[in-house]
Write a protein that binds this DNA or RNA. Structure first.
Length: 610
DNA sequence: AGCACGCCGACT
DNA sequence: GTCGGCGTGCTC
């Protein structure tokens, strides 16, 4: 009889020992019984006969994980301190792969500077392509992808949110046709099956996808492109809190895969760690003028005047506002209380559309009250304008303009997204009002005016990346204007001086920000955030205290702070946290494991501090 | 005493 | 993650 340690795929369990008549291969996938239920398991290693009774392996599936997948899964389990069963659960297993070859004739024409960039990328195993919006990064990616595909290799093109960027997909398909497969976690089961089958047949050899595309069964991966590498969406928002960009870098290093990180507003981390090629200037010759409007969020004479001029010139306008609904607050003018979610420490947003107050965290909804729940006063006032209200207000001023809203409430399906983009590019829409969605890589050809509102609050977030995120966001939105030959950008806010200082000067921002972060934050120091959540507040507090007790004596570990999270309550769970800092990873790994022992959630290299 | 519920630890 | 054992507390 043979004995094997088997990781139960998807289970938060250490590998368990089973017996088998046959000799099994490392990493092959089998079915076993756990608590009398059939589950998939992955053979980790052969072990001697244990001193407890073992159950037999039920069936050998004709599936395995690839070397790359195993390497990554082990790294995730090590670096993010989760069980191997959990990290393996992220991956799509491998059935077989037929290597296919076909050459792609069509290649983009590169400018001398683009050629130089491509040469630089070829020379360095991992490099940062620091290229302004519109400077032609895509052609460089495509040119390199083509080279790898023509060598018979597979390529992976990672994007923050593929579903939001149909244009990039179209572009890749224009060059690589049916060899492109689009992957994200919300793909329908049918499409997923088709893609996996074509992928294993070698028909699909370029995957364009969101962070989870890294977990597909690549067997001959030659190139990974991480587009918009500064984007936070590469970071998982549930345990394990992996960062697909960092995983791409790790696997590229480990397995000799070429890796390109691309951004117009790169992360300080990538800038510090990798050689970069600076691609300046715009591919489309255009002028841009910045107007800084030092006033609170909302429409005013300046903005209305600019919109009016743009519309008269038959140009289009985009307006960025990072707030959904009509208003973010409903405040009682008598007692000052804003209406709160009963399950979260979050103000309820006012949605006029279905006459509801809604919590954007847990989904709780109720009717719009007519009196204050605290003091019964009827002097309720809406505060902090959102996209819906802004659309309504603009309609009042420009009744003949066609105005569209572009946010999570409005764009609920892929179809709605493509329809909106199509209508906008066909000039059926004059003005788009939207949230972050708007800043993603869409090409708007006729936009002459971009208005950026409501970023003051972003700058205030107690987050070491508040400045870089805000500036990157503003630059991304600004980059959407002026693919037409002339663009105006209005940045509104009481802190617009910050943007005035750095807009279109990201190089200088990086230099200044490095000085701010030195000795405190990445790329100089590493962070670990431990989250403690419990429905019983006293339990959360005591767990936090116990963890702190264990951490206090640890060497080379600084306890930056601890206490309630900024959002104290979400979905009836009380939230506490500990923030730790270290120059090296090892102390943070130890701390992370201690957190796990108490059922807390360790978030290594956190990007979110709420 | 009998049963529902929720907590917590074990799962090979 | 999820199942089941066990303690608590409510009801008959």
């Amino acid at each position: 009889m043979n004995y094997y340690e088997i990781a139960i795929i998807g289970a938060n369990l250490a590998p368990l020992t089973y017996e088998s008549q046959c000799v099994l291969n490392e990493f092959e996938i089998v079915t076993i019984k756990l608590r009398n239920k059939t589950q998939n398991g992955c053979i980790i290693k052969a072990v001697p006969k244990p001193d407890f009774k073992t159950l037999p392996v039920i069936e050998r599936l004709n599936l395995t994980f690839t070397q790359l997948q195993i390497t990554l899964a082990k790294f995730i389990s090590y670096y993010y301190t989760c069980e191997i069963g959990v990290s393996l659960g992220l991956f799509e297993p491998f059935s077989h792969y037929r290597k296919s070859k076909c050459s792609f004739i069509k290649a983009p024409n590169l400018s001398p500077l683009q050629l130089e960039a491509a040469k630089f990328i070829k020379k360095n195993p991992i490099s940062l392509l620091f290229g302004d919006t519109g400077s032609g990064k895509s052609e460089i990616y495509i040119s390199l992808i083509r080279e790898y595909l023509n060598l018979g290799k597979q390529a992976l093109f990672l994007m923050p949110e593929i579903s939001l960027t149909p244009q990039m997909q179209e572009r890749l398909e224009a060059y690589f046709g049916d060899s492109v497969g689009v992957w994200h976690s919300k793909i329908t089961p049918k499409k997923k099956q088709n893609l996996l089958s074509e992928f294993s047949q070698g028909k699909i050899r370029l995957i364009a996808g969101a962070r989870s595309a890294l977990f597909l069964p690549f067997s001959d991966l030659g190139l990974i492109v991480v587009d918009e590498e500064h984007d936070e969406s590469y970071k998982s928002n549930s345990d394990p809190y992996y960062n697909a960009k960092d995983l791409a870098i790790y696997i590229a290093n480990k397995m000799g895969i070429k890796c390109i990180l691309g951004s117009a507003t790169p992360s300080l981390n990538s800038y510090a760690k990798f050689p970069n090629f600076r691609l300046k200037g715009r591919f489309y010759a255009s002028q841009k003028e910045y107007i800084y409007d030092h006033s609170p969020t909302g429409l005013n004479e300046l903005i209305l005047g600019e919109i009016s001029q743009a519309l008269q010139a038959k140009k289009q306008v985009i307006i960025f506002l990072p707030t959904r609904a009509n208003f973010k607050f409903l405040i009682c003018q008598k007692c000052g209380q804003s209406m709160q979610c009963p399950y979260c420490s979050i103000a309820l947003s006012l949605h006029k559309k279905n006459r509801a107050m809604r919590c954007h965290y847990c989904g709780f909804a109720c009717m719009i009250p007519s009196v204050c729940a605290q003091c019964n006063s009827d002097m309720l006032e809406s505060r902090k304008i959102g996209t819906s209200e802004l659309v309504a207000q603009i309609k009042e001023y420009f009744p003949f303009a066609s105005i569209a809203k572009f946010d999570r409430d409005e764009i609920t399906t892929q179809k709605k997204l493509t329809t909106l983009l199509k209508n906008f590019n066909e000039y059926k829409i004059d003005i788009i009002v939207g949230t972050q969605m708007l800043s993603k890589g869409h090409d708007y050809h006729n936009v002459s005016l971009a208005i950026i509102m409501g970023l003051d609050e972003h700058l205030d977030y107690s987050d070491y990346q508040a400045r870089s995120k805000s500036l990157a966001l503003a630059m991304q939105v600004a980059g959407r204007a002026g693919r037409a030959n002339y663009g105006r950008v209005i940045i509104q806010g009481l802190k617009c001086e910050f943007f005035a200082e750095y807009m279109d000067e990201f190089d200088r921002f990086i230099a200044d920000e490095m000085a701010v972060r030195e000795g405190l934050y990445p790329p100089f120091m590493r962070l670990l955030r431990i989250k403690i959540e419990d429905k019983d507040e006293s339990k959360a507090v005591s767990k936090m205290q116990q963890i702190l007790g264990k951490l206090k004596s640890m060497a080379e570990l600084e306890i930056v702070g601890y206490g309630k999270c900024i959002i104290e309550l979400i979905a009836s769970k009380h939230r506490y946290q500990i923030l730790l800092r270290s120059a090296t990873h090892t102390p943070l790994l130890k701390a992370s494991k201690i957190a796990r022992d108490y059922g807390a959630l360790p978030d290594i290299d956190p990007v979110n501090f709420s």
